[in-house]
Write a protein that binds this DNA or RNA. Structure first.
Length: 683
DNA sequence: CTGTTGAAATTTTTT
DNA sequence: ATTTCAACAG
């Protein structure tokens, strides 16, 4: 056995700035860390250093953007601590704001009148409840169209998270809803009442109640005293409410460390604000700032391109990243004929890279919107290239999975109207009207399902009804053996599902999956909670950790690629309208955010970077009509000098491209479309 | 009150 | 392509 390492040995791998940050004292600290500058390593070392200094692990709070990030950091910190012969990080509080809020509220929520058995609604559930209220208030049928539930929810959520008045939110972000101010106010009032009556919290409530808990003179003290150190990752993507929570949690910033990069702020749509990081020194006058600018990830040519792209941003804190990895080729801008051509080019390149030893898992395809990869997914399947998609619609968000989970949720919390309103209409002869009536009955009976036994169902439901009630009663009686519970629900719901959907085979398999993963959770409540707070981000997550020799390509939305890196990165659909998204070009602020998003995509690449865009988009609705795309506005000519360029041929073969000189393209390209398109490059 | 049908509107990123 | 809404038949 080797002797235990000293803390200096452990810190030896860090550069001076990183070390300064990792070993900084108790005053508030802002670490501005550009992409790939070893931000995670710094944070991990700081955790290890704090513990080595004698801070009790259970008194450290690590707030991250995803649970996965928290787990990875703590795992790495454990590795460092093992070198020091230290027991490790098991008791560190790590997780997202929402997950931590849940833990604290279960324990201390009583102090502010929150029953400890509350359940949590995800975004879709919240929208459903809001919709219930919307119809009750007769807002659904008005002479002019009232905003839809999704829009209402977004407005509500922005008010809460940005801590802004409805009036202001409407003026700033939803001008077309301006005429409904009074109605929206009534709607939100009623919505809040309903949540309270059902003992249900939505995502925003988790933060609101945490904040309220801290504001309470007694409970607030208790919670504050739990932690000596609070470390916050991805601070540029926190919102005003989250900043308030930190402010209360760490009076005068004592023990507070935040890490972020204003150039990578991409969650404004969720009310995150760059102001949190930009104004940190104002909030905490005794704060220190450490900037990390040496990039260890990418080659200099890739970095140069990324720097040029982000240089177009209007307001920035900082900073030009530099790398010692001068070698390497320029990123390649690929002009493709159409979507199919783009897919073909990428598959070709993926296989080429794999032949030279870059495993699939070291390569990633990134895109703006989840549906941008549909065609590529089909082609990958055809080429037998395994892949793993992150982002987009989650497994637990599909209708049949939600149905199944609704059984468990209703058993867990009989006052959960959304779960009930989802389940009851599944039965024949029962629609929204009867469902509402039944939920009212249940509520008056104090959540005792036997009140439903006495109810006389319509003829169509005569046989299923007793079984349905029996099932729920059984679930309430035996909350322990989770897989068995899921199995019983599956037996009941399976046949029902067959009458509701076609193509049921894959859906039936999904239900089996749930039964399998159920055994991983200690109980029903934990499973429901974890599935709403941290839904598996891809179907493969459900199958458990992938086998070691299992090699798969990564497909991901740019948002879900945050914080990750790959040897080879392909950014696809880099056409104006997709990047930036047409949906996000209403005001300059949104466009700025799209620019940062593009920057995030580019800076994921270590050695090879491809940016592809199809010249032609087909519109299935009108036969074979198509339109021509413009290259993303974020690559104007002066930025293009950082790229090599290539044009692919109509049949997917790569035509001769000019790889050596700046923004010029070979004139002998046969496609008229290409020529029309390239004209813009010289403007 | 339920369930079906057809027409109309909307279309992103996520805890 | 998918979701939402209104109209109508049982």
């Amino acid at each position: 056995m080797n002797a235990a390492a000293s803390i200096d040995d452990v810190l030896a791998g860090l550069n001076p700035q990183q070390r300064q940050a990792a070993t900084f004292g108790n005053e508030p600290l802002l670490i501005v860390a550009g992409a790939g500058t070893g931000k995670t390593a710094t944070l991990v070392h700081r955790v290890a250093w704090l513990i080595a200094q004698g801070i009790e692990p259970g008194r450290i709070l690590l707030l991250t953007f995803t649970r996965r990030a928290a787990a990875e950091m703590l795992h790495r910190a454990d590795g460092l601590l093992r070198q020091l012969r230290h027991p490790g990080t098991t008791r560190v509080w790590g997780g997202t704001y929402h997950a931590i809020a849940t833990r604290l509220l279960r324990r201390y929520g009583k102090a502010i009148g929150l029953p400890p058995e509350f359940t949590v609604h995800d975004r879709a559930d919240s929208e459903d409840l809001l919709n219930v209220v919307r119809t009750e208030l007769n807002l659904a049928k008005t002479d002019k169209r009232f905003p839809k539930k999704g829009t209402c929810m977004s407005i509500y959520s922005r008010c809460v998270n940005a801590r802004q008045k409805l009036e202001q939110v409407l003026a700033d972000s939803y001008p077309w809803c301006n005429g409904w101010k009074e109605e929206l106010g009534r709607l939100f009032d009623a919505y809040v009442d309903r949540k309270e009556a059902a003992s249900v919290l939505d995502y925003d409530d988790l933060l609101l109640y945490w904040d309220a808990l801290l504001a309470d003179s007694q409970a607030g003290q208790t919670v504050c005293k739990l932690f000596d150190c609070v470390l916050v990752d991805e601070y540029q993507d926190t919102n005003a409410l989250q900043a308030d929570i930190l402010y209360k949690l760490c009076p005068e910033g004592k023990g507070l460390t935040v890490v972020g990069d204003d150039a990578q702020s991409i969650y404004a749509f969720r009310a995150a604000t760059v102001r949190n990081i930009l104004d940190f020194p104002k909030y905490y006058p005794n704060a220190s700032l450490v900037a990390l600018e040496q990039n260890y990830r990418s080659t200099q040519p890739i970095l140069q391109a990324a720097n040029q792209v982000i240089a177009q941003a209007k307001e920035r804190f900082t900073k030009n990243l530099w790398s010692q990895r001068a070698e390497g080729e320029r990123p390649l801008l690929v002009h493709c004929e159409d979507d199919a051509d783009q897919a073909e080019f990428i598959i070709h390149r993926i296989l080429e890279h794999r032949e030279t030893g870059v495993e699939l898992r070291r390569q990633a395809v990134l895109f703006r919107a989840s549906h941008h990869s549909i065609l590529l997914e089909a082609e990958l399947a055809r080429a037998s290239i395994p892949f793993h998609k992150f982002g987009g619609l989650k497994f637990v968000e599909t209708a049949h999975v939600k149905d199944l989970l609704a059984f468990l949720r209703l058993a867990e919390n009989p006052r959960d109207v959304v779960a009930g309103m989802r389940l009851l209409p599944l039965l024949p002869g029962i629609g929204p009207g009867k469902s509402q009536q039944l939920m009212l009955m249940l509520q008056q009976a104090g959540g005792d399902f036997s009140t439903w036994s006495a109810w006389k169902p319509p003829a169509g439901a005569a046989t299923v009804w007793p079984k349905f009630v029996g099932l729920l009663q059984g679930l309430v009686r035996t909350p322990d053996d989770l897989p068995a519970q899921v199995n019983r629900v599956r037996k009941f719901y399976g046949p029902l599902m067959e009458t509701k959907y076609d193509r049921i085979e894959p859906r039936l398999r999904d239900l089996e999956q749930i039964e399998l993963i159920a055994s991983r959770y200690p109980g029903r409540r934990q499973m429901l909670l974890e599935l709403t707070l941290d839904p598996p981000s891809s179907t493969q997550d459900l199958a458990g950790p992938p086998l070691l020799d299992d090699d798969y390509l990564v497909l991901s939305t740019i948002h879900s690629a945050k914080g990750l890196e790959w040897d080879v990165v392909y950014v696809i659909h880099a056409a104006d309208g997709n990047i930036p998204s047409d949906m996000a070009t209403r005001n300059p602020l949104e466009i700025e955010e799209e620019l940062r998003l593009f920057y995030v995509a580019l800076t994921r690449a270590k050695n090879h970077l491809y940016v592809c865009y199809p010249l032609r988009y087909y519109h299935s609705r009108y036969g074979d009509q198509h339109s021509y795309a413009q290259l993303t506005r974020f690559l104007p000519n002066h930025v293009l000098t950082c790229f090599a360029q290539r044009v692919t041929g109509p049949d997917g073969e790569e035509a001769e491209g000019d790889d050596s000189d700046s923004a010029s393209i070979d004139a002998h390209t046969t496609s008229r479309a290409v020529r029309r398109q390239t004209k813009d490059l010289w403007d």
